[in-house]
Nucleic acid binder design. Structure first.
Lengths: 336, 336
DNA sequence: CTGAAAGCGCTTACAG
DNA sequence: CTGAAAGCGCTTACAG
């Protein structure tokens, strides 16, 4: 049995109120009683019960974080950042793997509500109306990371996908490429899918390179397999292509794998630029040139923003776009 | 303000005791009052407060899980399994990133203790005496995953590293290799480092291939960079080598990267077999042949074991070794 | 400086 | 079948 505040009160010959004051650094006791109490605490190895505290303070010092795919390489890094920031601010984090399922998400949200978490971080997915309703009901701060919502006014931490894609494409153009293809994500993904395609098109247009349908192949997801299958397709419909922009690193690496199999040398015969800068992007060969999203930092910022919102109810959150950079490695060749 | 059990009691014109019974499926009420209460609950959108429940039941339905490196590819998959099993059993999971730091681990353990988690899963690291002490103090079940402890009698879920390494080496031997090197992990890691080297040596010996020091290079960690640096070293001291066993996939992929740079073709000039079967092992080129640890399943089993222990205090846990397999891809060549 | 008491939102004997 | 009451382990006015 864990000792309670009563036990230490008895041992120190004071009331539990006094023990509580000392525990919480409130004023109201002599040096002497403080010593007695501190000694009793040490003797008993007393640890305050956070559950009891949570009940009375209406604060659990816990946040929930929802990912569509916890073990994904992107989520992992974001989670690391969230956990770090949360812990630093004195909060624990409960992880939830929604598996991109609406019903699971709903169940998790209900669960987090029952557990009375002090806030929630929602990652990489679109906010359905039902979610927004529960957010409202829960009445705790919510911050989005690596996603955003047009309908619901929720603060977010992310990178500007349009800009990132634009710059990636421009990077290729600046290296002398004129026939550029794109392996895109989903057309039904308004958060990351569409903006990256739009950024691609905008960069072409800006440099007087007409966009033609055959330059783009879209996918349902952003995974390795998608990329692997997309490259042959793209090559087939757009054989004169000298460079390709992939909407994610997995897509890019899948494309590289397909290129290897087709005996197309990267970057000599085909240049590739990715998007994300996952850890694998420097592990593959040749190492991938890519748009770097500061994933850990995004998680951290989201964690900081959320805990700040929890601590000072008034403060209005301002969303933030974090800067991206282009990490030059070895998959893009300069055309003369 | 969230409605409480009092609100529904008032609304349904019954006592809170009755509401509680209905909520918990205990016997003792008429169909009629059940209906009234259910209606009131729905009306108010009442959600039981898990914090209050936790206080009185001494059960938080929450477990803690500690990883040395949450965002590592290995941890990620284990976490996915843990989370799945925990959730299925009605538990939430709090993640902790110890960053392989003893003091952080201790702080997390204290925190989990204060939060009164019902159990903890400890991953991929050695159990120091201080940790074991806190485990005892906490008085909740603990299960280890992807690690084990010789000193402390704690149940574990893992793969037999000696066997895995033995079989990997034998795989190479069966493919006709006689000059086999190893890129090992740490000599100071009794859990994964040493057994994998021992398994390697044992397989050689068993097949009458003498082990010589030059055949092995060890590392502090199991990371990509370590592998990258190890291959040239190993090649230097053991140039006649035709195949190498790497103690992790990252090590193997780092070695492949070094091979690429040295213009050594894998598997034509050098065969490589890894250990883990991380997702990257099929994304690199050529896809890596490796010893597959069922990481997600390991997490799942650990989660199941822990929640079972929580539910039935008596039951003694029996550790388990999960089976590994060798996944044949394209980095090992058959010698004639 | 210190303590008795109420209360956070529940569950669980106990009595009827 | 149903309710009054005690209690889980704390915090916080309130009174002295």
């Amino acid at each position: 049995m864990n000792p309670t505040i009563k036990d230490v009160a008895k041992k120190a010959n004071v009331s539990i109120a006094t023990v509580s004051r000392i525990l919480n650094g409130l004023p109201g006791y002599s040096e002497d009683t403080k010593k007695k109490v501190t000694a009793a605490i040490a003797d008993l190895g007393y640890q305050p019960n956070a559950v009891a505290r949570g009940l009375i303070n209406r604060r659990t010092q816990t946040i929930g974080v929802l990912f569509p795919n916890v073990s994904g390489m992107l989520s992992s890094e974001v989670l690391e950042g969230v956990e770090r920031a949360a812990h630093e601010a004195g909060f624990s984090v409960i992880v939830c793997n929604t598996a991109s399922s609406g019903s699971r998400t709903l169940k998790y949200l209900r669960l987090l509500q029952e557990k009375r978490v002090d806030g929630v971080i929602f990652a990489s997915e679109d906010i359905k109306d039902e979610y927004a309703e529960i957010f409202k009901e829960m009445n705790v701060p919510v911050v989005l990371v690596s996603t955003a919502s047009q309908k619901h006014n929720l603060p977010f931490v992310r990178v500007n996908d349009f800009e990132g894609a634009y710059r990636a494409t421009e990077y290729l153009i600046h290296r002398g490429h004129r026939q550029i293809g794109m392996i895109g994500g989903s057309n039904y993904d308004p958060i990351a899918g569409v903006p990256r395609m739009e950024g691609f098109k905008a960069a072409l247009t800006k440099h007087s390179l007409p966009f033609i349908d055959k330059m783009l192949v879209t996918n349902e997801g952003y995974r390795f397999n998608d990329g692997q299958q997309s490259l042959p397709k793209l090559l087939h419909q757009f054989p004169e292509m000298t460079a390709v922009f992939a909407a994610s690193d997995e897509l890019a690496i899948g494309a590289m794998s397909a290129a290897h199999q087709l005996r197309i040398s990267v970057p000599d015969q085909l240049s590739i630029i990715g998007y994300d800068n996952l850890k694998i992007s420097e592990m593959c060969y040749p190492p991938l040139t890519t748009v770097s999203q500061p994933l850990v930092k995004m998680g951290e910022k989201a964690g900081e923003m959320l805990t700040a919102l929890i601590k000072e109810k008034e403060l209005e959150a301002k969303s933030m776009y974090l800067p991206f950079t282009i990490v030059e490695r070895q998959t893009v060749k300069r055309m003369k």
